[in-house]
């Protein structure tokens, strides 16, 4: 078991975001855009889901792009090339439904840019015109610009503080595209829930079909526990097996955001204990 999922490459993209290549030939062969893995870094560790940001079937690796937010991601960020993670399972979730829609706008907010990358690539390969909007609070948080450029026909960058690209939110950029008469056939939005909520509210107004990728708290990732449940169109869905992508116009984002905060107190305690001075 040990030594199975070795870390092949590691690089910090920003002080809080790192990219890791992991040896996982069987998953690399099977995975499709939109799918994720669950890993455990060590034996006492929590199972955490992470999107497969890239993969190479021939070379047999996966790439993950991870934002340090708490104990597990912090611990993970301290592993080095040559170390192994104790458990890695995937590919999980349903792949993105890829077809030729016409003009597809892919919106990635913050760390959400990483999972939107394979989707942009697959949409482009299917013959869509892909316009990507990358948003971050500030310049340093806009990651993977080059890769997204290569996967898209056009990219637009927004920062909240105007330090890079257009000043404003991703929704402002989307509104501008619509105002400029771009015919948008599909929007794919991945990022903080609040961003996905407002993108969905905007696209609803224009009746543009919208896919969002939800990052609820998970345990098993196989539909066994129900921890990841959300309300979509009035029905309870399990994000790990029914998703992670859903029709953004139907998702109850407020409930989802509330559920994401379920363990904030304990998460703080865990982090505090793990790195008392450093977070």
């Amino acid at each position: 078991m040990i030594g199975m999922s070795k870390i092949l490459e590691k690089e910090f993209i920003t002080p809080e975001v790192f990219r890791m290549k992991i040896d996982a030939p069987d998953i690399a062969r099977k995975r499709k855009a939109g799918q994720f893995i669950i890993l455990r870094t060590c034996d006492e560790g929590e199972r955490i889901p992470l999107t497969i940001a890239d993969a190479d079937a021939d070379e047999g690796w996966l790439e993950l792009v991870v934002q340090v937010v708490g104990k597990t991601t912090k611990f993970f960020s301290r592993l080095e090339v040559g170390d192994s993670i104790c458990d890695l399972v995937g590919p999980l979730g349903r792949p993105t439904h890829i077809e030729r829609y016409g003009n597809v706008v892919v919106i990635g907010g913050g760390i959400g840019i990483a999972p939107s990358h394979p989707i942009a690539g697959a949409m482009k390969a299917a013959g869509n015109k892909v316009i990507s909007i990358l948003g971050g609070r500030t310049k340093d948080l806009v990651i993977m610009e080059d890769k997204m450029k290569a996967a898209s026909d056009q990219i637009v960058i927004t920062t909240d503080d105007g330090s890079y690209g257009m000043k404003g939110l991703v929704t402002d950029a989307l509104q501008k595209l619509i105002d400029n008469g771009v015919n948008v056939d599909l929007v794919v939005a991945i990022g903080p829930p609040i961003m996905m909520k407002f993108v969905s509210l905007l696209t609803k107004k224009y009746e543009i079909p919208t896919l969002v990728s939800l990052n609820t708290i998970m345990v098993d990732g196989t539909g066994m526990c129900g921890a990841c449940r959300v309300t979509v169109g009035g029905e309870t869905k399990f994000v790990c097996v029914d998703g992670p992508e859903f029709d953004g116009h139907k998702v109850d984002f407020d409930e989802m955001m509330m559920r994401q905060r379920m363990y904030v107190e304990q998460e703080k305690e865990s982090m505090e204990r793990h790195c008392p001075h450093n977070h």
């Binding site: 006492e44 560790g45 345990v219 526990c225 129900g226 921890a227 305690e269 865990s270």
Partner: peptide, 19 residues
Amino acid sequence: NEYLTRANLMQAYSFPETD
């Protein structure tokens, strides 16, 4: 299932020694 999985498989009864 979730409650018991957290407690048994993930050993949440030892939190915060376990994560």
